[in-house]
Amino acid sequence: MPTPPPAVTVAWATFHRTWSVTRRAYPWSYFVGTLMLGVFTVGLAHLGLEAIGGGRVAASFAAATGTADYLGYITVGAAAFMFTTHGILWVAKALIQEQREGTLGALLVTPPGRLPYLAGFTAFAYTAIALEVTVLVACARVLGVRLESTGPPDALLAVLALGVAVFGMSAVLSAVMIIAGEAHITQNTLFFAIALLSGFTFPRQDLPAVLRWAGELVPTTAAMDVVRGAFTTGAGVSPGRLAAALGLGLAYAVAGLRWLPLAERHAMQRSY
């Protein structure tokens, strides 16, 4: 069997390591706990729609979002937000977790750069999140939600756009976290910003113009438009928004990966 390139070896070893450690450290309780967020979001939306809206949405909502299916809209948004936040939590926090555990120095004296290491973490994170999102969507279906998919190619493009956007943002956030030496304030600030700007749970048209423009600087905003086209509006994937999501996501990834060595040396001044 041919020997895989070192980067693949490192990514696979990191995937395997993270899988083993997570299975050992966070059994089903973690999976159930994180899933509850999405299930409650869809469940509460269902109750609110029935109790307040009498099962119908306003015409302005349909005009802004391209769909009158509020629960479908919320389910896609909740699943995408879960994908985004959990992806960032796993990937962006990988290095600061190493720092806290006292293993960052041992990692940094090994030859591989950070890309294969983060790729391994990303592969693990997206695998775990795929399971969580699958269960979330299954729960939504039990509540009667039906998603408007425009087909597997669009679905794959939507996952690709969101995946690249999340990876890019995670790479930048990872550098910010190890320079700041903390994770919670940094991650929660970002989560607040993207929840506000990227159109996960309400149409961005409701935002002031300045915030709509600010949202265009965040890769998940264009990615969410791709996701909406593939799963909510039935309009399909917009090539322009796909290009924006991939371009911005890759730009963030390149910036983050170039910044990380500086951030790592900054962290090394303080500890191993």
């Binding site: 390591r17 083993s20 450690v21 050992r24 450290a25 555990e101 006292g102 293993t103 120095g105 041992a106 500890s271 191993y272």
Partner: peptide, 9 residues
């Protein structure tokens, strides 16, 4: 004084 190995492995 630094562990430099993974506690959960």
């Amino acid at each position: 004084g630094e562990r430099m190995v993974y506690a959960r492995m």
